[in-house]
Design a protein around this nucleic acid. Structure first.
Lengths: 160, 160
DNA sequence: AATTTTTAGTTGCCGCGGCAACTACACGCT
DNA sequence: AGCGTGTAGTTGCCGCGGCAACTAAAAATT
């Protein structure tokens, strides 16, 4: 066998290590802040945020899945959880009998609105405040092609 | 209540969105490539890599946990899985009766060595090849303070 | 030396996400 | 109308990680 491996350069492995470490740790950190302060997982936060921005605070499950880079099963379960807590309602679609609309309730809206400031604050302290405008651009520019490749459907809609 | 939220600027939300999206999708992508091509999860890959670089291909469970930003329970379970497959062995420490040394077996070493080229290749295609040297530096520089904050112990040792 | 406290590691239970299987409805074709 | 194919969504089972509870051994305290 030929182990003629294309080794990484110093910078490459620095960047790569930072990226996988951040990817490993960031989701747990977000979950934990949001859970503690607002009783929501990060994914639930995203889902309710997307609903809030949607027309009539409602979206079909499939569209919600697309907008959140998620899968139908995952979303179906999250919606069930949120529904049990009254943050969201399932309403059968009048036009297409297969479709289900997920609607953010007033309670859900309030929960989200209460969660936002603390979360933004946390995000600022964790990442954004550190970076100059230029660094922010660089970061976005470096990551966007990666995201595009990771998300083959290019549905990456949260982008508001 | 006062919802005087510190809203994000355009760049901030671009950078933030790219970062959380990457964090959400990257780990699954790595797992899936490594699983398919080498039968290892990304975390198992990390663990075996750290062991391979360690003195005598062995490390105490606690040290392994520190080196991988992991917890003891998580690591204990991963080691059990790897042990079942013969990639790793548990050896009681001669000095401290509480400690367990995890040793990479020859089989484990071979499995890892087989996994590396394809993985590096994948990582290159996914991220690195896209970026100029300067962008790599920028990326690392932007993420490192974040990582430092996420990993309060600053044990972030994989760094070699 | 005996007792307490701390440290190392494992195990059980739970929650979450993935995949595959399934139901139900819609659409296309004849 | 009837049949097959495709689409929307849900559910069950599994694997993984977190936390808390536990065991066992070492260190510190008296």
């Amino acid at each position: 066998m030929n182990y003629n491996v294309p080794r990484m350069t110093r910078v490459e492995s620095r960047a790569w290590l930072a990226l996988i470490t951040a990817s490993e740790l960031l989701p747990a950190a977000l979950d934990s802040q949001l859970r503690r302060d607002a009783g929501l997982t990060h994914f639930e936060f995203i889902v309710t945020t997307v609903l809030r921005q949607a027309d009539g605070n409602r979206l079909r499950v499939t569209d919600l899945a697309l907008a959140t880079n998620s899968t139908l099963p995952r979303l179906s379960k999250v919606v069930s959880r949120l529904e049990k807590r009254g943050l969201v309602e399932r309403i059968a679609d009048r036009v297409d009998g297969r479709s289900v609309n997920v609607v953010l309730t007033a309670l859900g809206r309030r929960a989200l609105i209460r969660a936002v400031p603390g979360h933004i604050d946390y995000v600022r302290r964790l990442v954004l405040d550190d970076l100059t405008e230029e660094q922010l651009v660089n970061l976005a520019t470096a990551l966007e092609p990666l995201v595009a490749r990771l998300d083959p459907q290019h549905l990456y809609t949260l982008r508001n």
